[in-house]
Computed example of a mutant assay.
Amino acid sequence: TGATTATITVDEAGTYSVTKMEDGCESSTSIVVSQSAAVEITDLDACADDLPLTIDATIANGTSYAWSGGSSINTAANTFSDAGSYSVTATDSYGCSSDDDFQLTVLETPEAAITETHSANAWFFDGTSSLYISSNTTYLWDFGYNGQTASTATATANYPWSDPSNPTTYTVTLTIDNGCGTDVTTMEVTPDPLGIGAIAEGSFGLYPNPATDNVNFVLANAASAKGTIEVMDVAGRVLSSQTIAAGQTTGEVNVSDLAAGSYLVKISVDGASSVNTLIKQ
């Protein structure tokens, strides 16, 4: 250390030597300072069927142990039957002590649950209200449409507009596994066939979207005067146009001649214009 005092204090393990000079005589000695690794126990998840659970806190050169709970509070290995917050202190043969806190969570077989919110044809699903979940719980969603799946705790699915005379219902399936068991639950959702609830004053909805041959439009309000509906490419070039009669609220546009891709549909009525995106399959 370079110290020149009769005593020193060290805070790291290692070999230390000292040389003493007295009356022209020199003598030296050394000492090895050892320190065992600190006790460390991570937070644990245990299945109820696996209780009682034995946890081992053994450290190198350990001589004594003190647990805050369990059935063997003065041994290196202790057995637990209940969830809770615990701590352990371990002391080695050099008199050095270390301690650690940990959380023991006991899991039952999970109970899957789904909550949802939605806007127009975008639906947000949440599986975190499921019971007996942990940081290691896995989620598998099947949204029942077009092969859409997800493997996160929360996920979003997009459904197409549908015929208002025959709205389509989809079955959403959630499978969860917390390592102690698996559970499956389902929810049926019926997207607003036109997204009417999401159509703002003066705007419109399209269905089906994506479309193959024909696409239907619906106005939030009946046109008070004649208007137009135009299909444009993404550069704004008008590809087709037709008239909307006064009082009209719905209509159909033939898009069968369009190549697959994204297009813009613009409706102009009563001195105002609105634009929606159309996907052509």
Rank of each mutant, 00 (worst) to 15 (best):
T1M: 13
T1H: 11
A3N: 14
A6L: 10
A6Y: 07
D11A: 13
K20S: 13
S30R: 08
V33P: 13
E40R: 10
A46Y: 00
A48R: 11
D50S: 14
I55V: 15
I55W: 05
A57F: 02
I59M: 12
G69W: 02
S71F: 06
T75H: 07
A77P: 10
T79C: 04
F80I: 02
D82E: 15
A83R: 04
T91F: 02
V106S: 08
H118A: 10
W123D: 01
Y132T: 01
T137Y: 02
F143T: 09
N146E: 11
A150I: 10
A153T: 05
T154V: 09
A155E: 02
T156F: 03
T169N: 12
T171W: 02
L174S: 02
G181N: 09
V184C: 02
V184P: 00
E188S: 14
G195S: 08
G197M: 06
S203T: 15
G205E: 05
F217P: 01
M232E: 10
V234C: 04
R237C: 01
L239I: 03
S240T: 12
Q242S: 15
I244G: 06
Q248A: 12
T250N: 12
T250F: 00
E252I: 14
V253C: 06
N254A: 11
N254P: 03
S274C: 03
Q281N: 15
